[in-house]
């Protein structure tokens, strides 16, 4: 109740939610609006926006409908953003929880491992992974997950480490609860809020990374994506500005919306950071 009310008081978060709902709707309804493949040439090449009412956002150099590309691109962006984040969160929470709860050598080992992955330039590593294993929706998703779990692991480890020494966890040990049970029922529920906030922001970053990969030509060849559209528009910058502007705006709005929601969640889940007690 209070959580929803606090979230609803945050205008930015509501705007973000509205934008995201539109993007989700477009992604789901893409085949309804645009029954033919976005790869197919649909009209005259290089039509500007509003020149032909059938193609309100214009066409590219092969006569493909930009609007159709945007609609199908939304599917790829959201799918990869959500799935790769889910995978990254599972990896990060497992590693972080083990490190933070057990401490000592296990912690040392797991954290060196995490730091290693955090030091390596993320995008460069994603590029190498996708290039070597050939671009496909699976390799892209996994590559993004592999480069984005370390912050989650560090966050969860920090939470577990500080919660582990809290008195209610000590009390759980004293009354005879076992380690796994303490991790699941005592610590994890208290660490969920920051994980949710981080995960929501990670979806945004994953969408940016996916668009970068497909911009560099590492997208799935069977799926239209925003990054690919911008990459294809690069050589046509002088002749057809709309080819690059619209997909870019689509990415910007989607990522902005998710960031706004993430900040709204943060404010709503951590109310003590905002007001102080008298």
């Amino acid at each position: 109740m209070t959580f929803l009310r606090r979230f609803a008081h945050n205008y930015g978060a509501l705007v973000g939610l509205a934008i995201l709902l539109v993007v989700v709707a477009v992604a789901i309804l893409a085949p309804v609006f645009f029954p033919s493949s976005p790869w197919e040439s649909a009209g005259v090449p290089l039509l500007g926006p509003l020149e032909d009412p059938q193609f309100p956002l214009g066409t590219d150099m092969l006569g493909r409908d930009i609007a159709a590309g945007l609609a199908y691109g939304a599917r790829v962006s959201l799918l990869i953003g959500v799935v790769s984040t889910a995978v990254a969160v599972v990896i990060g929470v497992s590693i972080g929880a083990l490190a933070g709860f057990h401490g000592g050598r296990i912690d040392d080992l797991l954290m060196r491992f995490t730091e290693f992955f955090q030091t390596i330039p993320a995008l460069a590593m994603a590029i190498v992974l996708v290039a070597i294993f050939n671009p496909s929706i699976v390799s892209i998703t996994l590559a993004i997950a592999v480069v984005s779990w370390p912050p989650v692991a560090r966050l969860v480890r920090g939470e577990f480490l500080s919660l582990r020494s809290r008195e209610f966890v000590q009390a759980a040990i004293v009354v005879g609860q076992t380690g796994p049970r303490i991790m699941l029922t005592q610590i994890l529920p208290n660490a969920v809020s920051p994980i949710i906030v981080t995960a929501s922001l990670m979806v945004a970053t994953a969408i940016l990374t996916e668009s970068s990969l497909s911009f560099l030509g590492l997208g799935d060849r069977n799926m239209m994506s925003w990054g690919f559209m911008i990459g294809a528009a690069r050589t046509m910058l002088r002749e057809a500005w709309w080819m690059s502007v619209f997909p870019g705006v689509a990415i910007l709005l989607t990522v902005l919306a998710i960031n706004l929601i993430g900040e709204g969640l943060n404010d709503a889940l951590n109310p003590h950071l905002r007001g102080r007690r008298g």
């Binding site: 970068s212 911009f215 990054g227 911008i230 997909p247 870019g248 910007l252 990522v255 960031n259």
Partner: peptide, 8 residues
Amino acid sequence: FYATPLFW
């Protein structure tokens, strides 16, 4: 700017 793809 935090939400904008660099290449774009």
